[in-house]
């Protein structure tokens, strides 16, 4: 097996592992990590194919650079959304805890349909 073929198998392993984990994991953070790993696998394919010539082909390298930046962009968005979801859950939990401990006469706490 040549070096390049070996790395292609490594990339396939990364992709297989990460895609399955992406579909089966429950925690959104693990899914984000899985997307990153799958991305790295596909970038590995590109760089390996670029290494077939000497000096290495610069076009796939440029594509991989672009890919890394875009990966960090959507990972950042994903993490911020994850934090917002968790914060909303925390706020909801704090509200119900507050309501349970608050005065019983607070019927209007829900407040729907009170106004026009």
């Amino acid at each position: 097996m040549s070096t390049l073929e070996w790395y292609l198998w490594v990339a396939a392993a990364l992709l297989g592992l990460a895609c399955v984990r992406l579909l089966l994991a429950r925690d959104p953070l693990v899914r984000l990590i899985a997307i990153n790993v799958a991305g790295s696998g596909s970038l590995l394919v590109l760089v390996t194919l670029a290494a077939r010539t000497d000096p290495p082909d610069p076009v796939p390298h440029a594509l991989v650079l672009t890919g890394i930046v875009i990966t960090v962009a959507f990972t950042g968005v994903g993490l911020v959304l994850l934090r917002r979801i968790e914060e909303a859950a925390e706020d909801a939990a704090a509200e119900t805890a507050g309501e349970a401990a608050g005065a019983p006469g607070e019927d209007g706490a829900a407040g729907n349909g009170e106004g026009p």
Binding site: L4, E5, L8, W9, A11, A12, A13, L15, G16, L17, C19, V20, R21, V45, T48, L49, R52
Partner: peptide, 17 residues
């Protein structure tokens, strides 16, 4: 599933090279 997917992709990639 991971093993099958990895094996399939690996064969495809290696075949291309």
């Amino acid at each position: 599933a991971a093993v099958l997917l990895g094996a399939g992709l690996g064969t495809a990639f290696a075949g291309a090279v």
